[in-house]
Amino acid sequence: MIEVKEVSKGFGRKKVLNGVSFTAEKGKITSLIGINGVGKTTIMKAIMNLIPINRGEIFIDGEKLSEKSYEKITFIPDAITLLPQMRIGEAFIFMADFYDSWNEERANELLQFFKLKKSDRISELSKGNTAKVNLLLGLALDVDYILMDEPFSGIDIFSREQIANVFTSHLIEDRGVIITTHEINDIEHLIDKVVLLDNGVVLKEFETEEVRENEGKSVIDVMREVYRA
């Protein structure tokens, strides 16, 4: 379980996170929802220790993040993390070199699934294909938790569908996923849990099936209620 406890973070005078708390369980897909600039990405970077936080604590399976954690949790930002001049094959070698959790077999499977070639140079890929390679590099790690920042933003509809298919496959199964989005439509039926954010605070945290069952509301219904209030 990933536990975010009372986390605050400011850049200069601007408070981006103001006491954010929520949890994300293993085996579940948790979605952080909010308009742009509410600190979704900042939360992910804080979990990964890519930015320091001012207050609060973050635990992964009860432990604070350490260098070993990067074999257990990974972050897929909205831009690819390997060098543009690399070919996909070279990116694979880099990952295999540094990560014990790199699963070459799964990487090749994903390569086929996304119809990409090892000889493709990263800088020459289309936007959709770049997003797929980026996703692949994270998914091919045998990690328990995956954080994805806006995996659907700015890419074509077919790539979106392909990426959405990943969520229902064995590639995600049993892992804990946190995904940020400002567009819920693509994934409404895929997610287990929603954390609604605004102005650096958590407005509501709920299980999607529970609100459908108990209140007969869709995720969008809840969002309307919460953001209008």
């Binding site: 085996g27 229902t168 496959s169 039926h189």
Partner: peptide, 13 residues
């Protein structure tokens, strides 16, 4: 998993 994939919904569901 097959059904989740076919229906594009969460395997937990």
């Amino acid at each position: 998993r097959e059904l989740a994939n076919q229906l594009k919904i969460n395997p937990n569901t």
